[in-house]
Write a protein that binds this DNA or RNA. Structure first.
Lengths: 189, 189
DNA sequence: TGTGAGTACTCATTTTCATGACTATCATGG
DNA sequence: CCATGATAGTCATGAAAATGAGTACTCACA
């Protein structure tokens, strides 16, 4: 039951509709969790039923009516409780790592292509996170912002996302280099 | 269906019993996937039924009879296919990040405790990965090993695991520092 | 004039994961 | 002699996540 709390945490930044939430949760802009639209709508329904969030309908002229949700006091209490509870250390679960684990037994060229694709993807996310961070801190320096800014949670999680993607990119590049060198070396024999 | 391939990749290193597999998959020695024993046994059964692995019973005098599994040619082909297929970019999904996302609204002391715990855990894994890497490369340097060693897949995934945990540790420490400074600053007002 | 993209959401189903409980045997330490 | 822990698994159940399909309305573009 952690999606529940991820949604609560996301709603802390202000009222959001289900649709806006899906935008934040889908491609990876949400650097602290990921979920499908269907899960989010279902979770919103449940959260509202349990009184942890309150929704209000907003009728729009040109677009379909939407429902905006905000966290209630009960929701805040729930988050507080969640924060105090034990967090199981998260594990990696990545197709690409499985492929590299089998590196000695599969086609190197294919593997290099996959790694290269991932490196490109990581680079794109690095750019995105960079933009997000700049936007959040405005014209202040990072130090300044983290000391005195008034909503550093999203900034901090974004920093982790950034570092993660940098790690991904660097590792992909390193691994590609290693595999290439071995290809050349073996070709000589 | 990725656990399937994770098991295949793990079995490439040599015949393993279900029990040995669980040992490799549990605490985090498996730096590329994680699964419960029950899942592994179930997956082994399925893999054998599909002819991707072959099992043989080994009767032991002093211990229960075990079954050792090895990857078949069909299994190798399956892995090859998997390697060529699209890999969905993995997303983070971490309780701790959810908690930090809500940092501005929850008790800082509790949060710092959680971060500190995670940093300790990360440090322990860093040590573990360091040992594993040294063991795998023997007395060779990393460069040497990666160039000429004959089973670099596990080494490469272990490198990613190491970098990930270093990232975790550094981020936890940084975040703790930021939260502490804000606590002191706010205390003054 | 219709095609595709964006907004806003719902329903149903399947697959995957996680949990707890259970059966055995053997070795070790106290 | 009894408890604990390691070896080597199995069964059943439930929660969580992923997938596929569908509704309905609007706007821009060609």
């Amino acid at each position: 039951m952690a999606l529940r709390h991820a949604v609560l945490a996301a709603l802390l930044d202000g009222e959001l509709s289900g649709y806006q939430l899906t935008k934040a949760f889908d491609i990876g802009v949400a650097n602290f969790w990921h979920a499908q639209p269907q899960q989010l709508y279902a979770e919103l329904t449940r959260l509202e039923k349990d009184g942890l969030i309150a929704g209000r309908s907003v009728v729009q002229e040109t677009r379909p009516t939407k429902r905006l949700f905000q966290v209630t006091d009960a929701g805040l209490a729930e988050l507080e409780e969640f924060t105090a509870a034990f967090a199981k250390p998260s594990f990696i679960r990545d197709d690409l790592l499985v492929k590299v684990q089998a590196a000695d037994h599969v086609d190197k060229k294919t593997l290099i292509a996959q790694l290269s694709e991932r490196a490109t993807f990581a680079e794109a996310k690095i750019q995105l996170f960079g933009k997000l961070l700049r936007k959040m801190r405005g014209d202040r320096t990072e130090e300044e912002f983290l000391r005195h800014g008034h909503r550093i949670g999203p900034y901090l999680t974004c920093l982790r996302g950034l570092a993660l993607e940098q790690g991904n990119r660097d590792w992909c590049e390193r691994t590609i280099t290693v595999l290439r060198e071995r290809r050349h070396h073996h070709a000589r024999h």
